[in-house]
Design a protein around this nucleic acid. Structure first.
Length: 555
RNA sequence: CGGGGCGUAGCGCAGCCUGGUUAGCGCGCCUGCUUUGGGAGCAGGAGGUCGCCGGUUCGAAUCCGGCCGCCCCGACCA
């Protein structure tokens, strides 16, 4: 079937809408692929939906290939499921009532529903299982942004694995990881497997795939040598070594009047800021904890949450004074009674620290001798740190998170009573994993990575059409024949049969970005040929019409 | 939720500060003629509750108040 541009709903625009910022947002709107309906709510127009379906089909094939069983679950779910998991309290959950006042949830993910069904799994003989579905997710996002990059409603492929034990989960997890790698490759995406933070709820180990892009809301930290990649929040970099002053036998008080910042302290004492320490007093519930990091580092709040295992808040000024007997600028780890979590960077060497006495600091404070912390990783890694694998330099780049894969363990199965009878006759909870990909976001990432100043340059695997036939005036009949030949050869073909000028047709073809463009015009027909142009490279060749289908099939 | 910006024709914008006839411009759209290999020319034409509500005024796109929507930064993001 040949798509005729004269009949297609394909509203291309010369100018991008003023509220578009990301390249993918601008080009998808200009190319007539998508239109905004509300904040974070987009319609996929005919061409956009074709691309979306091609991405979906790639995902479907790869998940099927690892044993995924596709099903479909409702978008409206009873609130009870969410009370059972406890996730009803998460702010982004969309809630609503029916006319009798019963509570419902519009899921942002389907762990609850899947686990609900998994209760019908009864024996180890049925395991492992991998279930997946493509369905609409709703998220009450505080802030949607960037066109398709962060939506409030979107279709997600989510799959769930059910295994009898951890070893099985590891295998299911790895199978998904491999499948995802194949998906990105087939979509023409450059993407990296990264360590990520799982947050507080429901997950134990989580990883993501990130695609470097021009616009995105994540930061990918990577080693210049290509052997280490991580999400910014989870990255483990090795900071430079400090320049330490002469070591001291014991800490020595030094008066530091009016010195409240690390910069001022380092300047005042004439020491390397990296040879100082910084105290971050927090409350974990009712329990005071002192976080300690190197003076030139920044605290990673995500890592601290992970370390503490629960949410925390900074102490108030009153609490600080009550616990330490000094103000915020003079806190240190020596001779305090609260628990101390110190960053690994403070393990060796002597540092300047607050003296817990206003206007005073201590020189020569040494962990293990002068205080006894739990050592943890709570510093924010930065560009310029050394790679934890090879010591190379870490660099940062903007990226999009394409997919997230979690080892859920038994979090949901325990809550839902989803158990099975194992070989040893014992009833055990299913060991679960969950794996998500958003096709619309994937589309946006592809555009971010495949475009030039004239428009999109779709990889053939996801292009709305394989070939874009431009019919110039006067040779409509021959253009029709060329399109028919390509169609017969099995290509998806769009024929621009509109009454427009050549320049407009070319500009639209570039914008829409199908991988090959066939120009049929009087000039070419004198040779009994057409011009075949590769969208991405711009290479153009004159090809006799009889050879057309053979040539284009292999482009 | 905090900070900033915007809302006038399908898209991009001017007009608002300093109220005053039929609210403008470019692109797009419709009709006709001429053009026709990288966004044509001429002529004619259609299209707007100036985001909404209220107030001030003889008179409001313009001034004042409230609300709504959208964008960006931040917070948030299993």
């Amino acid at each position: 079937m040949i798509a005729r541009a004269s009949q297609l709903f394909l509203p291309t625009l010369r100018d991008a809408p003023a509220d578009a910022d990301a390249v993918s947002h601008k080009l998808l709107v200009r190319g007539g692929f998508i239109r905004q309906v509300g904040a974070g709510l987009f319609s996929l127009l005919p061409l956009g939906w074709r691309v979306h379906q091609k991405v979906v089909q790639i995902i479907r094939e790869e998940i099927n290939a690892i044993g995924g069983q596709e099903m479909l679950e409702p978008v409206l779910t009873p609130a009870e499921l969410w009370q059972t998991s406890g996730r009803i309290g998460i702010p982004i959950v969309f809630k609503l009532k029916d006319r009798t006042g019963r509570d419902f949830v519009l899921p942002f993910s389907h762990e609850e529903t899947m686990t609900f069904h998994a209760r019908e799994l009864q024996s180890y003989k049925q395991l492992p299982q991998v279930w997946c579905h493509f369905s609409t997710k709703e998220r009450d996002e505080p802030r949607a942004r960037g066109g398709l990059l962060r939506l409030r409603e979107f279709i997600m492929k989510d799959s769930y694995s059910f295994d009898r034990d951890e070893a099985g989960l590891d295998k299911s997890f790895d199978a998904h990881k491999q499948a995802y790698e194949r998906i990105w490759k087939r979509c023409g995406l450059e993407a990296y497997f990264v360590e990520a933070e799982s947050g507080i709820m429901g997950g134990r180990e989580s990883s993501g795939f990130m695609a470097p892009t021009e616009s995105g809301e994540n930061i990918l930290v990577g080693c210049e040598n290509g052997d280490y990649f991580a999400d910014y929040d989870a990255a483990r970099g090795i900071p430079r070594a400090p320049v330490f002053p002469e070591p001291l036998e014991r800490p020595e008080e030094v008066e530091t009047p009016g010195v409240a910042t690390i910069e001022a302290l380092a300047e005042f004492l004439g020491v390397d800021p990296a040879a100082t320490s910084k105290a971050m007093p927090v409350m974990v519930g009712e329990r005071p904890v002192l976080g300690l990091i190197r003076g030139d580092d920044r605290l990673s709040e995500e890592k601290l949450v992970t370390v503490l295992g629960e949410a925390y808040r900074p102490m108030t000024d009153e609490e600080i004074r009550a616990v330490f007997g000094a103000g915020g600028g003079s806190l240190g780890p020596v001779a305090v009674t609260v628990d101390i979590v110190a960053d690994e960077a403070l393990r060796d060497g002597q540092f300047v620290a607050g003296a817990n006495r206003d206007g005073w600091h201590l020189r020569g404070v040494q962990a293990g001798r002068d205080y006894h912390p739990t050592f943890v990783d709570i510093r924010q890694a930065n560009a310029g740190d050394a790679c934890p694998q090879c010591g190379g330099k870490l660099v940062e780049q903007t990226a999009i998170e394409l997919g997230h894969i979690f080892k859920l363990g038994t979090f949901y199965s325990v809550r839902f009573g989803a158990t099975f009878l194992d070989e040893d006759g014992e009833e055990k909870p299913l060991v679960m994993g969950s794996y998500g990909v958003g096709p619309a976001r994937t589309m946006a990432a592809i555009v971010e990575q495949h475009h030039d100043e004239n428009g999109i340059t779709w990889p053939r695997s996801v292009a709305p059409y394989d070939a874009h036939v431009v019919a110039l005036p006067g040779v409509e009949q021959q253009a029709e024949e060329a399109a028919t030949a390509l169609d017969a050869a099995g290509l998806d073909v769009i024929l621009d049969d509109r009454e427009q000028r050549a320049g407009e047709k070319f500009a639209d073809a570039d914008l829409i970005g199908c991988p090959i463009r066939i120009t049929v015009g009087r000039k070419t027909l004198e040779d009994g040929a057409v011009d075949v142009r590769d969208r991405a490279s711009g290479d153009e060749q004159r090809v006799p019409i009889p050879e057309l289908s053979g040539r284009c099939g292999s482009v």
